[in-house]
Amino acid sequence: MRILLALGGNAMTSPDGKARPEDQIAAATAAMEAVADLVAEGVDVVITHGNGPQVGNLLVKNEIAAAVVPPVPLDWCGAQTQGTLGDILMNALDGALAARGLSRPTAALVTRTRVDAADPAFAKPSKPVGRYLSADEAATMIDHGETWEDRGERGWRRVVASPEPLEVLDAPAVVALVEAGFVVIANGGGGIPTVRRADATLAGVEAVIDKDLGAALLARSIEVDQLVIATDVTHAVLGFGTPEARDIGEVSLAEMHGYAEEGHFAGGSMGPKVDAICRFVEQSGRTGVITDLSSIVAAVSGRAGTIVHPN
């Protein structure tokens, strides 16, 4: 069985959201225990991950140094965080596998995701990234060509395009590594946003790709049997925050679409995960799962989590 495990940002930071190097290493070490358990069960695992806090740290460095050196573009930030987090995750997974007496090679792949240069998102950037700045601080970044908006009392915030992911350009390399026996880490942060120019050459662009949609696209591209999105709750919930709240267990795609249309999933949290799972199930005819890391092994075998079936 081959699965794609998509790790949320909580798997890459401390419980309180801190992203110091020691916090990221500790979080990765805990997350890779679950992956090693899957490998021990004979599952072929491909891992993808969020990178929001890590890119946020790089953006702060950009802002502090903007008067001295030009800011690093967002596609470079994505590539840098894929490399750093890939290294951390490989080290943690190697240790977890060795502790179980398992010998499996690991690999981290810097991965590009193609988007359309004509995507409407580029015409009106709306995805907020990074921290709030004063008007004077934001003006320095605007002079470097960035788009910032006045958000009132909290200050100014940068907004960028979030185009639809169309193709994981390096998916064939992921497949080759998996078939060679590797546990692969790929497409972090939804992939490095890349466009194909008129002359067929490729170039990175200033944008961010939704990590859950990137995970769904990668899962289809490498033909996994199951997409598992790991978050900080065991299930998606109906009526979240109300006395009538209840966990969603096994459910059909049609039922999950219905719950989404009824407004049960918040846009900034569970909504994108449900959208990604539904896209994967609809387009692949296979199963999608939402659960937490501690329930991963049980969820893959159908005993835990929110499990979305095609029918």
Rank of each mutant, 00 (worst) to 15 (best):
T140A: 14
T140C: 07
M141K: 08
D143H: 06
D143R: 15
G145N: 01
E146V: 01
E146R: 04
W148M: 01
D150C: 00
D150N: 03
R151N: 09
A161G: 00
A161F: 05
S162D: 03
P165V: 06
L166G: 01
E167K: 04
E167N: 13
V168F: 06
L169P: 05
A176G: 12
V178E: 09
E179V: 03
F182R: 02
F182P: 00
F182K: 02
F182T: 04
V183I: 15
V184S: 04
I185E: 03
A186L: 10
N187Q: 09
G188S: 14
G188N: 09
G189I: 08
G191N: 11
I192G: 11
T194S: 13
V195S: 07
V195E: 10
V195Q: 11
R196C: 05
D199G: 07
L202Y: 05
D210E: 13
K211G: 09
A215E: 13
A215V: 13
L217C: 14
V224Q: 13
L227M: 12
I229L: 10
A230R: 07
T231C: 08
T231M: 10
T231A: 10
D232K: 05
D232A: 14
D232S: 14
T234E: 15
H235C: 05
H235A: 07
A236H: 08
V237W: 06
V237T: 13
L238V: 08
L238M: 09
G239M: 06
F240L: 14
G241I: 11
T242Y: 15
T242G: 14
A245R: 06
D247R: 06
G249Q: 11
V251I: 14
S252A: 09
M256N: 13
M256G: 11
H257M: 09
G258Y: 04
Y259D: 07
A260L: 07
G263I: 12
F265H: 09
A266G: 15
A266H: 05
A266C: 07
A266L: 14
G267W: 04
